[in-house]
Computed example of a mutant assay.
Amino acid sequence: MLRVENLSAGYGNLQILRDLSFHVNQGEVVSILGTNGAGKTTTLRAISGLIPVTNGGIYFNDVLLNKKSTEFIVQSGLIQVPEDRKLFSDMTVRENLEMGAYTKSTRANFKKNLDYCYELFPILKERETQISGTMSGGQQQMLAIGRALMAEPKLLILDEPSIGLSPLLTKQVFDIISEIKKNGVTILLVEQNVNQALQVADRGYVIENGEIAIEGLADELLNDDNLKAAYLGIST
């Protein structure tokens, strides 16, 4: 579904990614792991067309996305929930969800998708008329994911969905990610919470200094103490 081949990208003269390659198969959850500054968010920005690619290729369902507009990428079904959520903070929960269903096809399925979001996130239905900027961090994260689901993603990209959340809310978010996977949505997950990320993933990649340092099945990575100590800074 998604192929990233020999990708190089960065900001101006600062190159962050160097010859990065990985893939995501349909129906998988794939986790990209790494410490702060490793290049995880830069990878997602390049995939979504937010920064230019200087070398290599990004293919989504065999379509080259290099130099495609962000609008084209989103309409192709590649939907990202950014690290800072980017909610419309002065709009209600319902209005934020409506903003996710902006294409002709998603507008046609609005009621079905809204019911699905409310089933996944009952708190959003309860707070339907609440201004989103007054919600807790966990509720805002649920709303950001719900808004993305309203766009009917073929590939859902989640950038640090647990950041700033309590352990209880983090568990709830990852339970929801597992539920979304069961409903057939392919997920690319960037996370610093290694254990939670690998528990929901099928496979994982570890980025170090803008390069893939290691890759493998999630279970293998989760149980590799040497890997976690060497590449993720986790003492064992």
Rank of each mutant, 00 (worst) to 15 (best):
S21D: 06
G184R: 08
G133T: 12
M99G: 04
I79T: 09
N25D: 15
Y59K: 02
Q75M: 11
N209G: 01
I58D: 00
L50E: 07
E128K: 14
G204Y: 04
I214G: 06
G164T: 12
I58E: 01
A108K: 15
V74E: 05
L20M: 08
Q139L: 13
I212D: 07
K68M: 06
L2R: 02
S136K: 09
V185D: 02
I79K: 02
T129M: 04
R85V: 06
T186M: 07
G133I: 14
E83L: 03
V63Y: 04
I177R: 07
D175Y: 02
I16Y: 03
I145E: 03
P122A: 07
G39C: 06
H23T: 13
M135E: 15
G27N: 02
T170D: 05
E179D: 11
E152F: 04
K67M: 00
I157S: 08
T35F: 01
L2T: 03
L168S: 09
Q75L: 11
G216W: 10
V81R: 09
A201C: 06
Q139W: 11
A38D: 02
E5L: 13
P161T: 03
Q172G: 10
G27Q: 02
N13W: 02
Y102L: 13
N6A: 11
K154Q: 15
M135I: 14
L7K: 04
N13K: 14
L156C: 02
G56S: 03
I123G: 05
L114I: 14
Y116S: 11
R203F: 06
D115H: 10
K171I: 07
I176D: 00
E160V: 08
V81F: 10
N209L: 13
R85Q: 08
V185S: 01
R203A: 04
R45K: 15
A144I: 06
L217D: 13
L222I: 04
Q140C: 05
G210R: 15
L189W: 04
S132W: 03
E179P: 00
L2H: 01
S31K: 04
G210K: 14
Q26N: 10
T186I: 05
Q192Y: 14
T41P: 06
L198F: 11
L165V: 09
T106E: 13
S105F: 05
G56I: 00
K104M: 08
F174G: 03
K86W: 01
A38P: 03
T54W: 10
L168E: 04
F110W: 15
Q172V: 12
E5G: 07
L14P: 00
L20N: 05
